[in-house]
Amino acid sequence: MNIIGLYNYWIVVVLMLIGFFIVIAHENLIKKLVGLSIFQTSVFFLYISMGKVAGATAPILDENYQLYSNPLPHVLILTAIVVGIATTAMGLALVVRIYEAYGSIEESDIQVQDNNDRLEDYLEAYGRKNDTHLFNQDKDE
């Protein structure tokens, strides 16, 4: 009994985990965003499931029906879907720009390039520091 009553929620949990796994385990920036939207969609299921009343109908008032499902989760999820698409659009725009700037959408490739940048900074800082020492010695002499 217990398990049957919670069955729907467990499916939600599994979906959620698949989405979450795609986000954190994959390195491709687009795939991460797909994972993120699956993760979010599964949360929508969580909300909508809790609003369901067995035997009820959609919450549009009509004289022929007495029992309605809970409208509040629906409202919240409408908002959440919109937030989700906004985030996806923003993420994709960033992916396009990242590809233009780095020529790759794999996280590891990008990291290598960023590390190179940082290495250059490092060399510049210490290389130039030595230069100034030389410069000072020149002046002392």
Binding site: V23, M90, A101
Partner: peptide, 24 residues
């Protein structure tokens, strides 16, 4: 700065995970 793009993307992914945890 191009590194701002990746930083922003990283923040977007982490931030959205955080926000999703909050709505859960």
């Amino acid at each position: 700065d191009r590194r701002a793009l990746t930083a922003s993307y990283q923040y977007l992914v982490m931030g959205t995970i955080g926000a999703t945890f909050i709505i859960i």
